[in-house]
Design a protein around this nucleic acid. Structure first.
Lengths: 352, 352
DNA sequence: CTTGTGTGCACAATCGATGGTGCAGAAAAC
DNA sequence: GTTTTCTGCACCATCGATTGTGCACACAAG
């Protein structure tokens, strides 16, 4: 029987019902009651009433008082992509395990939007912020710093706090080498037949390009300026780049290093305008893993970044007092063509 | 010059600095100052100070007082899937446009977790809740109702408030028919060669199954009980179902209707254990669109649900006073094989 | 010079929880 | 029987904003 079934019960309601003070109710319900020497029986009474009244604590009030909220934020560039959505999925599982509330927000890789998003999150007194793939992590840092908000960089490193990123150089080397080895000895790939499309001037792309170039030089003897075709992380810009390439030479390279599944979608758009024969002998390496992409008609070598590892490491590091900011590298994994890996969804129990 | 550059400025700080009262500062900063007949010059002064002090309003305090938070929630089954992640992406764009803060949370299709998630969101006084793909929307409704929280169902309908869902029956008919027409007249598909895998006993699956059966009977003359193989929304359960089918008959059906891209991942897992020749003549229809899936080696017909339309409609409906709960159907779209559609990411400005 | 009408703002209660402090009564020590 | 030590809890300020109310002063009307 709620007094007013319309509005939520507060500790004051329970205080009246139980005959104790609001502070006693509060202590009982937030677990500090032993410290306050509340009788077991009083606690029981209050807990029962709370149950009966369907009491839940008002987190805004609690947060206001304690300047903490129980919210843990993850800032992503975008949602709609298997890499970032698995990041979100994995992040949520970790936060839930700690009994807190995950809040995932995207900021479109726009530095201004990143800052605004951070400001917004700060204004809700979130407890920690995981900054994933931010274009300008350091200015997000300033905002967090000013608010005394713990934070950490994932995927793209910053210089002000610890970062957890993929070992993009090594991953890129592995991928580039695998692409090259995909070709038979009697008809090997030559340097001018392997191009990298996608990415932009961020740390990840730079490292991948470096790995790509190094391996090309080591295994194919040389590289050349035009083998890198940055397109930004946009499907459409990538599509345009492929079209342009194709229009100029009437063919695609024999092998492509595609710098993210988002750019790979640009290749798909290109493909939809061209006959499938054009891709019969193509070999693609993609820095990112997408299960469907792995089964395309041509060999697709993929790099799966260690999302679970990054999140785990980030959770460890975020609580550490900041010494000098370090960057932790996690080695990503090469995924052979036609491979369906399990993902964060497999951790969920099957509901029938 | 902040007084204490460490802690955030409050209206009281600005009140001291400006020589006005806190209520004046508050009114100026939240826009109600004209109503309160504050002088333009006072307002200017305060706004400048706010800027200077990098004031941002504490949303917890504001929310506590006004029992609103500016947070708009979206509850998803899972993140890691193109359908739901595009839902999140689209939702965010809409919420941002309204100047509010999106918060996206997943609840694993677990009714208990759905309820808990709803409780949590309620305790943060979120302003509206979009319930997407919930297993038990009606008990989430109870929670929202009790808290006076506006809410709406998306993707899977409830009976207590308005719902916006795909026209699954019609979509399924379109898809089934397209699968059948994919086969040539001289070697047409027969009823016993077309199976539906995936889904479970939810409204969407039931409607899709109904459409599937109706079209089979209309175009192929008959249907049979075993043509439906529910597997739950789990990649692995789907894989097992395919394995079982294959072990029993040493082949796959000529054509498959796969009831969600999640189940399609189960087919991928099956594929990775079998030679590609096995799939040379396969035709797959999938209820969900994924750009990479569309380019697999065999023809993949896909249904793209109108995410943008659903979100838009949901935003319209959620503010309407509740008459009798209605279900709004949005017709999904058939996507031909090898089609790369643009998505919510294309709306973002290109940052270089 | 008084009454009336605006203008421009300050005051104070309030939202719901937290946590420091203090106090009454019981039990234990002397 | 008095003093000390525990128990068990109540009181109250506080977090930072919002908002209804009221008041002082200026100016116009009568």
């Amino acid at each position: 029987m709620k007094k007013d079934s319309r509005k939520k019960a507060t500790i004051y309601d329970l205080s009246v019902l139980s005959g104790s003070s609001a502070s006693t109710v509060s202590a009982v319900l937030n677990g500090t009651w032993r410290k306050r020497r509340i009788k077991e029986s009083t606690a029981d009474l209050i807990r029962n009433l709370a149950e009966e009244q369907q009491y839940t604590t008002n987190q805004q009030a609690r947060g206001l008082r304690s300047s903490r909220s129980g919210l843990i934020g993850l800032m992503l560039p975008v949602h709609d992509n298997r890499y970032f959505s698995s990041m979100a999925q994995t992040f949520e599982a970790h936060v839930r395990k700690r009994g807190q509330c995950p809040i995932v927000v995207s900021s479109s890789r726009d530095p201004e939007e990143e800052r605004q998003t951070a400001e917004t999150l700060v204004s809700y007194s979130i407890d920690e912020l995981f900054i994933c793939g931010a274009t300008d992590p350091d200015s997000v840092h300033e905002i967090c710093e000013a608010a005394g908000l713990k934070h950490i960089n994932i995927d793209l490193p910053g210089t002000k706090v610890h970062s957890v990123v993929s070992d993009n150089y090594e991953g890129s080397r592995i991928l580039t080498e695998a692409i090259i080895r995909q070709f038979p000895a009697d008809n090997p790939l030559s340097s001018d037949e392997l191009f990298l499309f996608g990415g932009r001037n961020d740390e990840a792309s730079r490292e991948r390009i470096r790995g790509f170039r190094d391996v090309k030089r080591e295994l194919l003897g040389s590289d050349f300026e035009a083998s890198i075709q940055p397109t930004n992380y946009s499907p459409n810009t990538a599509r345009v780049a492929f079209e342009k390439f194709f229009n100029e030479r009437q063919r695609l390279p024999r092998a492509l290093f595609v710098n993210s599944s988002i750019n790979f979608e640009g290749l798909l758009r290109f493909m939809s305008n061209h006959p499938r024969e054009l891709f019969a002998d193509l070999v693609v390496g993609c820095f990112d893993y997408d299960p469907f992409a792995s089964f395309l008609p041509f060999p697709v070598l993929m790099i799966r970044q260690d999302v679970e590892g990054m999140i785990t490491k980030a959770f460890e590091l975020i609580k550490e007092p900041l010494s000098t900011p370090k960057v932790y590298f996690l080695r990503p994994e090469l995924v052979a063509p036609r491979t369906a890996l399990s993902g964060p969804l497999d951790g969920l129990k099957d509901i029938v």
